[in-house]
Write a protein that binds this DNA or RNA. Sequence first.
DNA 1: CCAGTTGTTGTTCT
DNA 2: AAGAACAACAACTG
Length: 278
Amino acid sequence: MPELPEVQTIVNDLNAAGMTGRQVVQAQVFWPRTIATSSPETFRRSIKGQVIGTIGRRAKFILFGFKSGKRLAVHLRMTGRFQIGKSDRPNGHVHVILSLDDGRSLWFHDTRKFGRFYLMDTSESESLLASLGPEPLDAAFTPGVLAGGLARHHRQIKPLLLDQTFIAGLGNIYVDESLWAARIHPLRRADTLLPAEVKALHAAIRHTLRQGLKYAGTTLGRGQSNFYSLGESRGTNDTHLKVFRRTGLPCERCKRPIERIVVGQRSTHLCQWCQRLQ
DNA sequence: CCAGTTGTTGTTCT
DNA sequence: AAGAACAACAACTG
């Protein structure tokens, strides 16, 4: 669930919570596989004493930069969440706890246990991020860059936009929303988009992501597996979705019902009228 | 009980 | 070689 806007929202909230300058005084690991780069024991030993310098994002990774030159990259995958521990009794879905020098602790909550922590030297961590595609909200991501990329692939446009090596940060929700906004069918072959369509797609991706960010992410439903930023705060972008999980509801533009199809094994929502395949 | 689910990776098939 | 299909990871939701 967490895509670029959700991950950025968490990063913003971590920064607002005053994490910079905090020292990790103790770490606990309850689900060993969460730690991707070493044994839990090595992780606990390595992170103890680290002082947080910066907290940022690349693609869907949260990057904790420590003053020592080490870096913790966290990928939330489907259901990872951070929360400021409010008690000393975490529930069964809290798999890592970082205790801080100000008495607070950062809990990593992850019902499906797919989330991963990568702790390494910053220089070494570049290999983890090396294959990622461009950041869609960076100034360097121009319509020309997108056009050049699309021209190199004959793949269906939706799976291509989900491919993190092609463009970073998009997931199922924002891809469906972007394609609807650009009026492009998810099965269109990437190298068949006309220049005007590429331009529309570029604008749609940026608009869709910025809107998600503006409303602090998309939270669907109320369950354990939904997106919540720090402190259990929900995002409100769900009220602005045009197609995602809106099967049968009228398209905002043409009033015809939104349909659900499967593309690349992924649930896909679209308006067959506005997004014609030809 | 059954089908479906937001992300990613690795394998296998075409 | 490229791209599509599929399983696996693991657990909740409807």
